[in-house]
Amino acid sequence: MPEVIFTGPAGRLEGRYQAPKKKGAPIAIILHPHPQFGGTMNNQIVYNLFYTFANRGFAALRFNFRGVGRSQGAFDHGSGELSDAASALDWVQSVNPEAKACWIAGVSFGSWIGMQLLMRRPEIEGFISIAAMANRYDFTFLAPCPSSGLFVHGSEDRVAPAREVMPVIEKVKVQKGVIIEHQMVEGANHFFDGKVDELTQTVDAYLDKRLGPAKAA
């Protein structure tokens, strides 16, 4: 899993990249939680999502937003981070020019950024959104949501309580053929402390349904 440095709008961005074994493999970008609250690409959920996609043969990238780790720049309240995510996708596409499809996965703040990128890049055909803070960030831009995907929350999330978040997500408009699924991990808090394995199993089950078993990918 080589370390990579690529150019972002505010300077270099630091990432970890797993190259696919086959040409034309799909791309997966994983976005970390809020930079001002300890979010980095080494977050346990981000780390597990990275390998979930890499083990399925994806060209997988996780990276630090501007101002985190060795990434240059400073926190920009979402606007700059969205530009960082777009640059990350551009970079992976540049080294995988045969790739036709892309998935985006985000955790908490990273989910909000990822869903905005989804609206801007038609090649993104699926998403995984973990602990989306739809109670704190506006998700009404998903009108309609252009791709099918999965939202996952913890039943004991106090940062983005499911009772507040689920009605917001359920109001997201979808276009024909797009299906948005919701899953709950019982007993999990916003950070899925002690529940990351259950979260990973939930994501794996969804990807099996969409893409087929990992061993067949």
Rank of each mutant, 00 (worst) to 15 (best):
G67E: 07
A85W: 00
V107D: 02
S71Q: 02
R56T: 09
I30Q: 01
W91A: 08
S79T: 15
V92M: 13
G39N: 06
F109K: 05
F53D: 02
A59Q: 06
A86D: 06
Y51C: 07
R62T: 10
D76H: 14
H34C: 04
A99Y: 05
V68L: 01
L89W: 00
F109E: 03
K100G: 14
Y47V: 08
T40S: 15
G24K: 12
A85E: 09
R62N: 05
V92T: 12
N43Y: 04
V107F: 15
N55S: 07
G57T: 06
L89A: 11
P97G: 01
F63V: 12
P35A: 01
H34V: 06
W91M: 10
F53Q: 05
V68A: 03
N42L: 13
A25H: 04
V95F: 14
S79F: 12
P97W: 10
N96H: 12
I30Y: 03
I29S: 03
F65P: 07
L89H: 00
D90G: 07
G78I: 03
L49P: 05
F50T: 09
K21I: 05
V92D: 12
I45A: 06
C102D: 07
D84E: 01
V46W: 00
I113H: 09
D76W: 00
S94M: 13
I27G: 02
G24W: 13
N96W: 06
F75V: 11
A54H: 06
D90T: 14
F53R: 13
S94F: 12
S108G: 12
C102R: 13
W112N: 08
A54L: 13
F109L: 00
F37K: 10
K23Y: 04
A85K: 00
F65L: 00
I104Q: 11
H32G: 08
